[in-house]
């Protein structure tokens, strides 16, 4: 495969970094599989998977972009005759695919242990994909403001915590949880039929917001 687009470049770079790739698969599995196999309420296990998606999506995308910007590569990419939105869409898609793959194993174990009703399977799949895309898009949003790597970590942590709390994963958040796709994934995992409905729309809105602000990520150069 040749890196003929930003999407392909991201995939190729992830595949080349074998140690990083191994960690990306081992860490979620190492953290989530004991949770899945423990004698815990289903809602807690579902929350574990949802939090993992939020964390890996937001943190991975955000820190990755801040690092690229610090290296100077975003300046170089700002010179390309490709729209920032298209570049960032490729970035989000590539990172979302990786997140889907790394969370798929714990999710599969969860679904084997707690088989969903047939009418909920599609909900789970849709909500899973929506949550992964939304988390990565939030990561891009969190990367717009920071001016340094340490600021980037701070913004990412704040965004992760906000997403967890506002999605009602710690305690019910009746006024906000329906506004984020993560709550719908959690609901679908605890087999609530129909919970999936709004999540693609919300993920689309978050993705749209990330793409709308993406030009601000480029060309932030100084003398």
């Amino acid at each position: 495969m040749h890196p003929d687009s930003f999407f392909r470049k991201e995939i190729l770079e992830d595949l080349r970094n074998r140690r990083g790739l191994l960690l990306k698969f081992v860490l979620p599995a190492g953290l989530l599989l004991p949770l899945m196999l423990a004698d815990l309420p289903v809602s807690l296990q579902a929350a574990g998977i949802t939090v993992a998606i939020i964390f890996s999506g937001i943190f991975g995308s955000s820190i990755g972009l801040v690092r690229i910007r610090e290296s100077g590569m975003l300046d170089r990419m700002a010179m390309l005759p490709i729209s920032p939105r298209r570049l960032i869409a490729g970035y989000i898609l590539a990172n979302a695919l990786l997140d889907l793959a790394q969370i798929a194993i714990p999710l599969a174990v969860f679904l084997i242990l707690h088989p969903p009703a047939p009418e909920v399977v599609l909900c789970v799949a849709g909500a899973f994909a929506s949550a992964v895309v939304a988390a990565n898009a939030l990561g891009v949003l969190a990367a717009v403001a920071p001016g340094s790597s340490s600021e980037g970590h701070l913004y990412a942590i704040i965004t992760v915590m906000a997403a967890i709390v506002l999605s009602g994963l710690v305690a019910p958040a009746p006024h906000t949880q329906g506004l984020l796709p993560f709550w719908y994934l959690h609901a679908a995992l605890v087999t609530a039929p129909g919970a999936f409905a709004l999540s693609p729309v919300l993920a689309g809105l978050i993705l749209g917001s990330a793409l709308a602000v993406s030009p601000r990520l480029f060309g932030r150069t100084r003398g």
Binding site: H2, L12, M73, R76
Partner: peptide, 19 residues
């Protein structure tokens, strides 16, 4: 600045194709 994990050719190809 370059994509460190990619080869020199891959880096240059990314830019050439992007142009």
């Amino acid at each position: 600045a370059h994509w460190e994990a990619l080869t020199g050719y891959e880096n240059a190809r990314f830019f050439a194709r992007s142009y």
